[in-house]
């Protein structure tokens, strides 16, 4: 079966991109997103529930503050699922993949949306 074609990512712009008070901080936040994406992917594939929960919890709390509410929601959805999930819930864990992908894509889009400082 051929791979489903990936829809091309479109840059995601922060709601606060033009706010002088936050501009630099938003750039800092987005410049650190690729590292987070790697860490999230890593935590998912090695099944480090605590690490993954901590990472999405922090994204949930902070993303909207940097003007990325959709990232916050996506991270929040994963955090809520992780709360319900037992450590041995194999199908449940695998079904998280779609949500993790969604979060990862949003983070990548945000990282694309900001010109280098």
């Amino acid at each position: 079966m051929p791979d489903e074609p990936m829809s091309p990512l479109r840059p995601l712009i922060s709601e606060f991109a033009d706010e002088p008070e936050l501009k630099e901080l938003v750039q800092l936040f987005t410049s650190e997103l690729p590292d987070r994406v790697r860490a999230i992917e890593n935590a998912w594939s090695t099944r480090e529930v605590t690490v993954l929960r901590r990472m999405v919890h922090q994204l949930r709390g902070a993303s909207a503050g940097y003007g990325y509410p959709t990232i916050g929601h996506a991270a929040g959805a994963i955090e809520d699922r992780l709360r319900e999930l037992g450590s041995t819930d194999e199908p449940g864990w695998l079904s998280l993949r779609r949500q993790v992908d969604q979060l990862v894509n949003l983070c990548r889009s945000a990282a694309m949306g900001v010109p280098r400082a």
């Binding site: 008070e21 936050l22 901080l25 800092l28 936040f29 922090q58 709390g61 902070a62 503050g65």
Partner: peptide, 13 residues
């Protein structure tokens, strides 16, 4: 707060 993002945000805000 253990989140550096939140600390930075509060500092700015």
């Amino acid at each position: 707060d253990d989140s550096l993002d939140v600390q930075r945000l509060l500092r700015a805000r």
